[in-house]
């Protein structure tokens, strides 16, 4: 260690460090790139035809807002570099195509079948590098750690989505949706791509393993349900107060009226 710290001051140290840094990032990037290529390969079987089919679908359904070659218009952002995951999430949850312009795209019945979605994804992925559709291994909740995932969820997600994933309000008509019933894949893709106003949680912020832990946590609490009876929407003290004032006092008033009434 001593030797190393002495050499740190050497004039060539900076150059060496730079070279080392470039080497590491470069190799990591190639590794990451090849992984995502591999994933792209196994989610899309016949790449070339898929891209072509996807382009046709895109021109017919998406180009009005996103532009003929996905370069973006005043009505929709550019999709170059958003990656297959973004398309799979947006189209796969029915958010795209949007019904109308609004504060945010809403989930609704899905417009395309799985094959069409993967063709669209393949086309958009071919436009520029971006997050790929996650593989099965990072979605496998049996390998995740729910406690670790819960900690990450509380720090990074709970402020918008609520600690029990019940959803919450954002500014000017936007909102964070509830996460109950959202598939593992879509949760992962949302974290990786940051749909709408959600921030992006790239792999250097929350690693794929951490993302799997978060998904494990969400699926655990969803499977658990509530321990103490009906959860009242998991909305916290407001729902509880409303319940006491309506149902609680309602039952009590019914009893008081019976108690003070005169029998026939």
């Amino acid at each position: 260690m001593k030797a190393l710290s002495k050499k740190r001051r050497h004039p060539l140290a900076a150059v060496a460090l730079l070279l080392f840094g470039l080497l590491v990032t470069g190799s990591l990037y190639t590794a990451a790139g090849s992984i995502s290529e591999a994933k792209a390969a196994d989610t899309t079987s016949a790449s070339v035809t898929d891209v072509e089919e996807g382009q046709k679908l895109f021109v017919a359904n998406c180009a009005t807002c996103h532009g003929m070659s996905a370069e973006g218009t005043a009505d929709g952002p550019s999709l170059i570099g958003v990656g297959a995951a973004a398309v799979d999430f947006q189209v796969g949850t029915g958010r795209m195509p949007m019904q109308m312009q609004g504060p945010q795209a809403q989930a609704k019945p899905v417009q395309f079948d799985d094959e069409q979605i993967s063709q669209l994804s393949a086309y958009v992925a071919s436009l520029g590098a971006g997050p790929a559709i996650p593989g099965e291994d990072v979605l496998d909740t049996t390998q995740g750690d729910a406690a670790q995932g819960g900690t990450i969820f509380r720090v990074n997600c709970a402020m918008c989505h609520n600690a029990a994933a019940g959803g919450g309000a954002l500014t000017r008509g936007k909102f964070a949706p509830t996460l109950a019933g959202v598939s593992e894949k879509h949760i992962y893709e949302a974290m990786a791509t940051g749909p709408q106003n959600m921030p992006v949680f790239n792999d250097s912020n929350i690693t794929p393993d951490d993302k799997r832990d978060v998904i494990t946590f969400l699926k655990t609490i969803e499977a658990n349900g509530s321990a103490g009876g009906a959860a009242l929407g998991n909305l916290g003290p407001v729902a509880e107060g409303l319940f006491v004032w309506t149902a609680g006092l309602g039952i009590i008033i019914a009893f008081t009226i019976w108690l003070t009434s005169r029998p026939s």
Binding site: N156, G194, P199, V200, F201, S204, N205
Partner: peptide
């Protein structure tokens, strides 16, 4: 956290 880790649109706690 490296500066290069922080991409546009991301938020780190």
């Amino acid at each position: 956290i490296k500066a290069s880790d922080v991409q546009l649109g991301s938020a780190f706690h």
